[in-house]
Design a protein around this nucleic acid. Structure first.
Length: 805
DNA sequence: GAGTTTGAAACT
DNA sequence: CAGTTTCAAACTC
């Protein structure tokens, strides 16, 4: 809930949201303008704000709530209120008495921001002293809840702050040997890394350094503490850019990946390398250990053309990128502006987007990385490489002077503090997708490029707060196109990267992300995933996050079963008239490109990116929540590991409810039923039979469960039987005098055991289905017949094989 | 596989 | 916002 009054706006979060929250960004949904963020660097808004968008910096939740005036009562929208000189207080929502636990009592997460007066853009003091450059979310020792701690640093000085070990975080600031170089602070918290302040890429002609805190979310599970993070920064020569947004983005990606395993070690082995690897967790320590020697100097990016680093890297560099760009416009063909490593910068003439195309490396790899091992930065290039172990390096480059690819970091929205870049063309950036980051690409030549992927457009929003694969149409972009508000699209673009990559052996695929609630699924839940539209949640590093980053229509229920391509299994659409640019199309609705679909005249692909973007905007204009999951999770404070499948279903609901009239909400026409949830008060259905006590529903669910159990048991039993039969030696132990082997010679104790298991499973299932005794008996006999047929068949095959031999 | 039914999305 | 049309998936035969 968001309330306004008496000089402050309170943003109240559910327990789960609060738990997932490491920072807050509050923005005006109408303009996309960031009003405040927990970075402590704020801007003001002159707009009349009726709604606020509240986002977690690292979290998935994005709340758009009306501004409410406390004085008018909790539910009275105070339309037309401008936020002036207000504090935004983020706190956890109170829960009714009797439902409180120690973890969900009301607590103030932080008074994160003070808004300036309308019309006044807040400027940073030149000295930089006493400037809140970041807010670290710590845990309130009293409540156990996170709370932000403003950290004031002087950008010109270097500090090394070690927080108490109990705070589970450390702050490292390194000094620079260049007085004019802003310092940066690396803050490692239990939930993320904050780099700040940092000078962002500057545009020629602008000299004002912007202090921008970068937040790299590394949700480190508290349960996995102590976690040791050792960062030995890169030493570098002066006047060279070593760390730029791209680097940080990639670093973030690497760290995200590593965060999943808990223990992270960062260290540098050479001036141009930072190696991230897992290290053993020290015992008995409750804090992160951060060591630093000298952090890489962050300097404004200069107009350094991107060049290929190593001969082994493919380079399709235009001698004169600008000139080539003009030529490309004339030719109306996508042009490779630059290519370094495995990333090519693509400019599509006529398109306002820039693309990053992953290309195959010189070296091939057929195995997926078991861990991400190297982040390499270059002194001379605006690039950073992620080199997953056993996988190809992924290099990302920037060329700010050309505005080719602007890789925007998880940057707090304090960009207005500095002059905007002279050229605010639209850029597209690949967001790190935690589980799709490092799928190796096979093939080695430039001609075998992976298909161009439209990387998500990153705006001034803090990237890290969005689910992987999220697309945001930036305000700069929006302005060009007349799009005022940023558009949030939960597109699984990065997942699409996988879809378009060459086949990767399934055996080498990383394990699927854990289901949001780690409790085992009920058969109904499992069947729901199959029976409903077969989409798989967008992966997330955080189980809590995962709940929110699910496919639009089906909430996360189970880990995805990856296809051989590494892609999430997805049901192909059959659209014929919508060009797959309407929400009728499930691919489009889920933010995915059509791939291997049966659609006709499809425009849901890169070739029609312009149309697609317009369609996305159109959808969002009609409904800002158009791409949000239709099935939402109610606030759950129960730890994931303790949730049961029953709870999972009971805590999901359709955000809008269904409108069924004839199906009784007991067919898959009904979105509630399809998602295996019961209809709620949101529904406007007639003749609903999809409620808890509905006998029709119970019958259906029972039958579905029984069918599911039957399939599972039979599959398991037959698999075992087959394996047992196949393990029988080709030459049986006994044989009749005639020399002919008889089938019973194959009935070893193992085969008999497997057969018994089959019969038992069948009997149990028949009983569960409450079949009459006669039917039960028949089902068992039939099962026995099937087993016998398999045995005989196996015997015949063995005999044939022996006779041939 | 063709035709029908259904309800969400899109449109007016 | 309500009524109508369009659309694609679910369903039936």
């Amino acid at each position: 809930m968001t309330s306004q009054g008496e000089g402050h706006v309170a943003v109240e979060l559910d327990a789960m949201e609060a738990a997932a929250c490491t920072g807050i960004v509050v923005s005006n949904p109408m303009s996309g303008e960031i009003i405040a963020s927990s970075s402590g660097v704020v801007t003001s808004t002159t707009d009349t704000v009726n709604y606020l968008t509240v986002q977690s910096q690292n979290g998935p939740f994005i709340i758009q709530q009306p501004v409410k005036n406390v004085n008018n009562g909790p539910n009275v929208v105070n339309n037309g209120s401008a936020l002036t000189k207000s504090h935004i207080i983020v706190r956890q929502k109170a829960v009714p008495l009797g439902q409180q636990t120690t973890s969900n009592v009301t607590s103030v997460l932080g008074d994160i921001v003070t808004l300036d007066k309308p019309g006044m853009k807040r400027s940073l003091p030149s000295s930089g002293s006493n400037v809140i450059t970041k807010v670290i979310i710590t845990k309130n020792p009293a409540s156990g809840q996170p709370q932000p701690v403003p950290v004031r640093t002087n950008p010109q000085t270097l500090t090394l702050t070690s927080l108490p070990s109990s705070s589970n975080q450390s702050v490292v600031s390194a000094s620079s040997d260049q007085p004019e170089t802003p310092t940066k602070t690396v803050t490692l918290t239990s939930q993320g890394i904050v780099l700040s302040p940092m000078t962002t890429a500057s545009v020629p002609g602008t000299s004002t350094a912007k202090i921008v805190p970068y937040k790299i979310p590394i949700p480190i599970s508290p349960s996995k503490t102590p976690t040791k993070i050792t960062m030995i920064p890169v030493s570098r020569s002066p006047n060279k850019t070593t760390l730029n947004p791209a680097n940080i983005t990639v670093l973030s990606r690497a760290l995200n990946t590593f965060a999943q395993s808990g223990n992270v070690t960062l260290k540098a082995t050479s001036p141009s390398k930072v190696i991230i690897k897992q290290g053993p967790a020290p015992t008995g320590s409750g804090s992160l250990t951060v060591k630093t020697q000298s952090l890489p100097t962050i300097a404004p990016q200069t107009a350094q053309p991107i060049r290929a680093v190593a001969p082994s890297l493919q380079t399709v560099q235009a001698p004169n990128a600008v000139q080539n760009a003009r030529l490309a416009v004339q030719d109306k063909k996508p042009m490779v502006i630059n290519s370094v490593g495995s990333v090519q910068q693509i400019q599509v003439p006529g398109s306002r987007f820039h693309y990053v195309r992953l290309v195959s490396p010189v070296t091939t790899s057929t195995t997926l990385p078991t861990s991400l091992s190297v982040v390499k930065t270059s002194d001379t290039l605006n690039q950073a490489s992620v080199v997953p172990k056993n996988a190809i390096p992924i290099t990302m480059t920037t060329a700010p002077q050309l505005n080719q690819v602007k890789i925007t970091l998880p940057v707090q929205q304090n960009m207005p503090l500095a002059p905007k870049p002279a050229a605010t063309s639209v850029h597209r950036v690949i967001l790190p997708a935690t589980t799709t980051t490092t799928v190796p690409v096979q093939g080695a030549s430039v001609t075998s490029l992976a298909p161009i992927q439209p990387a998500p457009t990153v705006s001034i929003q803090n990237v890290s707060q969005l689910p992987p694969g999220t697309t945001i149409l930036s305000p700069s972009n929006a302005n060009i196109q007349g799009l005022r508000s940023f558009a949030l699209v939960p597109a699984s673009y990065v997942t699409q990267l996988q879809l378009n990559k060459p086949l990767v052996s399934k055996a080498t695929l990383p394990p699927p992300p854990p289901p949001p609630p780690s409790a085992p699924l009920s058969t109904s839940a499992a069947s729901a995933q199959r029976q409903t539209r077969d989409y798989v949640p967008i992966a997330s590093i955080d189980p809590v996050v995962t709940q929110y980053t699910v496919s639009r229509n089906v909430p996360a229920q189970n880990g995805p079963t990856l296809e051989a391509t590494g892609a999430r299994p997805r049901k192909p659409c059959n659209c014929t008239k919508s060009q797959c640019l309407k929400l009728y199309c499930d691919c489009f609705a889920n933010g995915e490109f059509c791939q291997n679909c049966n659609c006709t005249n499809c425009a849901n692909n890169l070739e029609h990116e312009e149309e697609r973007s317009k369609a996305i905007k159109s959808c969002l204009d009609r409904n800002p929540q158009a791409f949000h999951p239709k099935i939402e999770w109610r606030g759950i404070s129960t730890p994931n590991s303790l949730r049961k499948a029953k709870d999972i279903e009971g805590n999901r609901r359709h955000t809008k409810g269904c409108n069924c009239k004839r199906s009784g909400c007991l067919k898959n026409y009904c979105e509630c039923y399809e998602a295996k949830i019961m209809c709620s008060s949101f529904c406007k259905c007639f003749g609903c039979k999809n409620f808890e006590e509905s006998p029709e529903r119970k019958t259906l669910m029972h039958l579905a469960d029984a069918a599911e159990v039957r399939v599972q048991q039979q599959t398991a039993a037959k698999t075992k039987l087959s394996s047992q039969i196949s393990s029988v030696p080709s030459r049986p132990p006994t044989a009749p005098a005639s020399g002919e082997r008889l089938p019973f010679a194959l009935i070893t104790s193992d085969v008999a055991e497997a057969t018994s298991a089959c019969l038992l499973a069948q009997a149990e299932e028949a009983e569960r289905m409450k079949m009459p005794a006669v039917v039960q008996e028949r089902m068992v006999i039939e099962e026995f017949g099937r087993c016998l047929m398999q045995i005989i068949d196996s015997a015949n095959r063995t005999r044939t094989a022996n006779s041939v031999a």
